[in-house]
Amino acid sequence: MLAMNYRGPQRVRIDHKPMPEIVHPQDAIVRVTRSCICGSDLHLYNGSVPDTRVGMTFGHEITGVVEQLGPEVQNLKVGDHVLVPFNIACGKCVFCQQGLFGNCHESNPQATAVGGIFGYSHTAGGYDGGQAEYVRVPYADVGPTVIPAGMDPDDAVMLTDVVPTGYQAAGIQPGDTVVVFGAGPWASWRHGAPGSSGQGELSSLISWIIVSNSPATTAPAKPTTSKRSATPCCS
């Protein structure tokens, strides 16, 4: 299959790699339909994440179609179109039981901080990621979620990391002034989005200030339904 292959800092290439296989009864093999490059993939790309090994395939924002299932998987069937959260989580350990799927104790037992993450170095478990035609998804009953009927896969793939990462962040109340340092995708979208309470009207009651030194990212590429535009400064 075609897969991205890390060859060293600032060197990645497309390559032919062996098809992933079911190696555990709770695995699924997923044929990738979308796979983002995340801003955090650039840390790997630039060689700043410890234990990023040559030969690894990156990619942790994935949607795809289930091609093959291990014998213990119960919640999925072959042909399901799923979105795959970037966290690899067992669903059973003490952290997963608290909803801390990003801190799973089983998927990355060698680490004390982070759980397993697709394609994010051996610091995050050493799992190959989804910038490929196929990917092995461990604990397939836990993470992968069937994309609801009618949902655009472009929307679904954004729900695997970037949107939830922004969404979980804030603790914002109506009337607050909120400063966002760094105008990446999350900030460009955020000022047009509802706040963490899930109330759509909240955004209009908040003063957003976006701070960035990157000309490429001071303005949102496609402004969404913002009622109040962001105020770029320090540019």
């Binding site: 959260p85 966290n87 989580a89 801190n103 949902m151 949107v163 939830p164």
Partner: peptide, 24 residues
């Protein structure tokens, strides 16, 4: 934290379905 995606998905899916969010 690293976002615990699975925990947040039900609310986010609803926001996308009712048009509150336009992630794409």
């Amino acid at each position: 934290n690293q976002a615990s995606v699975k925990r947040l998905l039900p609310r986010l899916i609803k926001h996308v379905q009712n048009g509150t969010l336009d992630p794409k």
